[in-house]
Amino acid sequence: MSETTTDHGGRWPRDDDALAEDLTEVLRGTPGLVDVFDARPRREIAAAAVEQGVGRGLEALGLDAPGVDVGGRSSGAGPRGLVHVVRRADGHGTATAHVATDLAASTPVVLAEAAARLRRHLADLGERPDAWAVRVVARLVDGEG
């Protein structure tokens, strides 16, 4: 596959997919975190289902729906990269995760730990810590207590 100059800082989008998958797995290990929702916007989900390389064509197809995020609980059988990764041309990036936390735990603690794990993983991959913004949002507090 050829390299293209896109908003991904010269990297192929597939790298970000792999990163999203890794980050999702890292999340799952967090104590007090009971599930991971899909934090990706709808157009990214559509892109993942289509062959790579469509890029801006998606916008032309009208699949770009600003402000509409679609996230669902991962059943394990579907896409594995549920963390929304956006990498900018200047090397900065954001990683957003939507999760469910345990009723018996303390949500602020769980979210902080989850975010810390994501940052550690990014650092392990050689990313500059101050170049990444990490956001973890609890959509649900669940469990039997």
């Binding site: 602020p108 913004a133 956001r135 973890v136 609890a138 959509r139």
Partner: peptide, 17 residues
């Protein structure tokens, strides 16, 4: 929102949560 646990990190709950 919750207080930022570290620089560059944001955590929150949704209103629905």
């Amino acid at each position: 929102p919750l207080a930022a646990p570290a620089p560059g990190v944001g955590t929150a709950l949704t209103k629905a949560a």
